[in-house]
């Protein structure tokens, strides 16, 4: 860990201007990923600006409907917030599928989306990594890439975004409120993260000095037909190989609207809105789900160790849609194992 100066910000404006003055500074809220990375010298901010004293730790209904999640509300407090549990159960489920209770007590809503990839090579200075050191190459491309991306990849990077919460936020169509050097703005959650392209060192579209102040959940709630399915190499406390967040609006057996976001498969929470159109007005059957899954994964590329994710993601989508459509009642699968 590098030596750094610690600054405690008193309000958002001060925080933004403090960071703007320090070209390589970082905000810290929960610290769960920043300090993790600093201990490995992956992040080396000379200035760390502690924003925990900012007044951004509330969850409040928005006047026009929807819910505002303060950036400094912890993941745990968000997941277990009564309004979130009742109206946005998908978000609760996704958050609770991630990390550990201790980490969720530290990690914040503003920080969670900004956590960095868990790519082994990104974490290890002994190996080249374009995300860590642009231009050095991607070791995962031909390396051990079991946990890596199959969608939206580039020859420069096949890292994934590791968050569970963000997958639900992407499905729900959240919006992100940002305070920056040039004032405040709001962006779609879809536009927060980016694909690696030829600049994989950039995880998202934030400018230096930008502070996420809150995340807004839309008026549309999806209270019942939701599912978050997370597949991982152990039952808890592991990152997703594939995760699926599903929110359905149903009329009887008919799908009025489907939202399906994938985690663990891309550099950002993955969603294919065009394919979702395919499900509109259709009955909730395995055939439709399979066809949808095929469409979503049609552009997927496997890199060897992670090629199984293409098939696995399809199966996970079908299962999650089935579960959501059945309002969490699991039905026997018709599909044979082999």
């Amino acid at each position: 860990m590098n030596s750094f100066s610690y600054i405690r910000a008193a309000d958002p404006a001060e925080a933004v201007s403090q960071l703007a003055q320090q070209s390589n500074g970082k905000f810290v809220a929960g610290g769960t990923n920043l300090f993790d990375l600093m201990k490995e010298n992956i992040e080396q901010p000379p200035y760390v600006i502690d924003i925990n004293r900012l007044d951004l730790a509330r969850i409040e209904p928005l006047p026009q409907g929807g819910l505002r999640l303060g950036a400094l509300v912890t993941n745990a407090d968000t997941a277990w917030n009564e309004l979130v549990e009742q109206n946005y159960p998908l978000l609760s489920k996704a958050i609770l599928a991630g990390a550990s209770p201790q980490l969720r007590n530290m990690a914040t809503n503003g920080g969670n989306p900004l956590q960095r990839t868990r790519c082994y090579y990104f974490y290890d200075h002994a190996t080249p990594c374009n995300k860590r050191e642009p231009g050095t190459g991607c070791s995962a491309l031909n390396g051990f890439n079991r946990i890596h991306a199959i969608l939206g990849t580039s020859e420069h990077c096949i890292a994934t975004h590791p968050s569970d919460m963000c997958v639900a936020l992407r499905a729900l169509g959240a919006r992100v409120n940002i305070k920056g050097v040039n004032g405040e703005r709001t962006i779609d959650f879809a536009d927060l993260h980016r694909l690696p392209g030829d600049a994989p060192h950039l995880d998202n579209n934030l400018e230096h000095g930008d502070l996420i102040t809150s995340i807004d959940l839309p008026e549309k709630q999806f209270k019942t037909n939701v599912a978050y399915l997370k597949l991982r190499d152990r039952q808890s406390y592991a990152f997703a190989l594939v995760s699926v967040a599903v929110a359905l609006e149903m009329n009887g057996d008919q799908i009025l609207e489907a939202r399906v976001a994938l985690g663990g498969v891309a550099h950002k929470p993955w969603r294919d809105e065009a394919a979702e159109e395919q499900l509109k007005g259709q009955p909730a059957t395995a055939d439709h789900f399979k066809a949808f899954a095929d469409t979503v994964l049609s552009g997927a590329i496997g890199y060897g160790h992670n090629t199984f994710k293409i098939e696995l993601a399809k199966r996970a989508i079908v299962r999650a849609l089935t579960t959501a459509a059945a309002q969490s009642v699991e039905e026997p699968s018709s599909q044979p194992l082999v």
Partner: peptide, 25 residues
């Protein structure tokens, strides 16, 4: 690195990983 929980302490009644927080905070 927050990957085992051995460092768990209670801060204001809540359990956290003390390895991933700086004392000054």
């Amino acid at each position: 690195h927050g990957q085992c929980g051995a460092c768990t302490v209670l801060v204001d009644g809540k359990r956290i990983n003390s390895c991933l927080t700086m004392a000054v905070m």
